[in-house]
Design a protein around this nucleic acid. Structure first.
Lengths: 245, 245
DNA sequence: GAGTGGTCTAGACCACCAA
DNA sequence: TGGTGGTCTAGACCACTCA
C-alpha cells in the first residue's frame, strides 16, 4: 500500500488512492458490470487500510453511480442492463405520465472517417474510423426522436444494424454486453432548432417547426469520450426534465 | 437529544435527526445566509453526539449546497449573493465562451390572483395573491431571454419593479437580502416552441422561430415551492448545458 | 499558536439478507 | 446463523487559515 506521505506537495488522501485502485480494477475487468465486488473488510485487508477508509472510497464511487451498494447483500458494479437503469440518461418524459416505452426504428449504420471536429470530441485522430448510426424512436406509433450516433470504430468492432435493432432503445446496455464498454457520465447541450431536410421528413414535420436539439457526449471509465449523439426531439407532448441543486 | 431507538418501526439514523435539527435552525433564522455556524465540536456537545455524527449531517447538507464547508475557516450557510453563486441556476452558456454578463430590462410587475394551475404549482389556494414580473435579459445588446416570473405575494410583500431593476439579473440574491428567502433547489422542464405574440416582438423574432422554453419551479427550505418561472431563450449562440451522472 | 475542518483508525453494535 | 453494509463512538493527528 502507498505511504501516507503527509506534507508532500502532491498530498492525496488515502481514500482517494483507494478509489483509484478500485477504478483500475474496474477498468482492468477484474469485476464486470453487475458483479459483486469483495466486502469492505476484505478490501481493507487487501489494501492494508481500515474499513472506514475503504468505505469512504466506495461511497464516492457509489455517489457517481459507478458502484451500487445493497445493504445485507454486498457492493456491485453498476450496469445499464439492470431494470430501472436502462433509461438512466433519458430525461425526456411525457407531459402527463412517466418514463416511456420507446420503439426503435433503425435507419442506417455506416462506416466513415472522423473529421477534425469529431476527432476533437471523441479524442481521436482526424481520419480515424468511426461508425455512424441513425435511428428513429417512436412513442405509441408516433415519431418522437431522430437520433444520430457516432462511435469510434475500433472499440466497437462488429457493431452493425442488427445489434442496434435487437436491443430496444438502450444502446448503453448493448455497449456493455457486446463490447464491455460502460458509460458512467455524459454531458448534454440543448438548444431549440427548426426542422429541416431528412429529419423533418422522418419526423413528419414541416420545415421550420421547432425541435429540441440534444447533443450528448458520453464518457467511460477514466473520463474517456466514447460516444457522440445528436437527438432531435418533438416536444409537443414531452419535455426534458432536469433538477438543479 | 433524541434516543437512538433502534429496532423501532420508524428507525431514523442519528445523523438524519441532527440534519433535521440543523435545518430547523436554518428555517428559524438562527443562522442566516452567509453566516458561520458553530464548529463541529460545539454542535456535537450541543446535541450530545460525537463529532463524526455531526460531520455526517453537515456533509449531507453541504452536498445539497445548503451549507458550505471551508477548511480552516468554518462551515457557512450558503448564499446566492456570494461571487460565483449568483448564476448557480443558470445553465445557459455562450457557445464560444463562459457564463455571461447579462443586462436586465424590466418590463412589468403586476399583482394578480393565482388560477387553479398556478395554485397547484406554488401550493397556494386558487385566488391567492401573486406577483407577476416580466423582464428581458440581454447579452451584449441583443435580446436573449424573455422571463415571466410568478411568486406568492404574501412572503414577498413590497416587491416592486425597482427592486428587480437594482439587482442585475440575480433574483435569488435579491430574495435573500430583501425577504430572507433562500432557494435551495429547482426543477426545470424544457421544450422547443415557436415564438409568438409579445414575446416574439420583444425578442425581435418572426412568428414561429424556434425558442427554448425553460419552465422552472424553485423551492426553499422544506421543499416549499416559492417561485415559478418561464424563460424563453434564443439559442442561436447559446446552449443549455447539463451533466448526467 | 489557536481554532477550524479533514483524514484515519479501531472497535462496538445494528439492520438487512440469504441460506 | 453468518455475512454484508450502515451507524456511532472516541481519539489521534494532519491541513488550512488567520491573528
Amino acid at each position: 500500500m502507498k505511504e501516507k506521505n503527509y506534507s508532500s506537495p502532491s498530498y492525496k488522501p488515502l481514500y482517494e488512492q483507494i478509489k483509484v485502485l478500485l477504478t483500475q480494477s474496474l477498468i482492468g475487468g477484474e469485476w464486470g458490470p453487475g458483479d459483486m465486488i469483495p466486502s469492505e473488510i476484505e478490501l481493507a485487508s487487501r489494501y492494508k487500510v481500515s474499513q472506514g477508509t475503504v468505505r469512504k472510497a466506495i461511497d464516492a464511487l457509489a455517489t457517481e453511480h459507478i458502484l451500487l451498494r445493497r445493504q445485507g447483500k454486498g457492493t456491485f458494479v453498476a450496469t445499464h442492463s439492470a431494470e430501472g437503469m436502462k433509461l438512466r440518461f433519458l430525461r425526456l418524459t411525457s407531459i402527463d405520465g412517466q418514463k416511456e416505452f420507446l420503439k426503435n426504428e433503425f435507419i442506417s449504420c455506416t462506416k466513415g472517417k472522423a473529421d477534425v471536429r469529431m476527432g476533437q470530441i471523441l479524442d481521436l485522430k482526424a481520419g480515424a474510423s468511426i461508425i455512424e448510426i441513425k435511428r428513429l424512436l417512436t412513442f405509441s406509433g408516433r415519431p418522437l426522436i431522430y437520433d444520430h450516433i457516432v462511435v469510434p470504430a475500433s472499440p466497437f468492432k462488429g457493431l452493425s444494424g442488427n445489434r442496434v435493432e435487437e436491443k430496444n432503445g438502450s444502446m448503453y446496455s448493448m455497449y456493455e454486453s457486446e463490447f464491455g464498454i460502460r458509460m458512467i457520465r455524459a454531458e448534454e447541450r440543448l438548444k431549440a432548432v427548426g426542422a429541416s431536410g431528412d429529419v423533418a421528413v422522418a419526423l413528419g414535420l414541416k420545415n421550420g417547426e421547432p425541435l429540441l436539439s440534444i447533443e450528448r457526449v458520453s464518457f467511460t471509465y477514466g473520463d474517456k469520450p466514447m460516444e457522440w449523439r445528436l437527438g432531435l426531439c418533438i416536444t409537443d407532448n414531452h419535455h426534458y426534465m432536469n433538477e438543479l441543486e
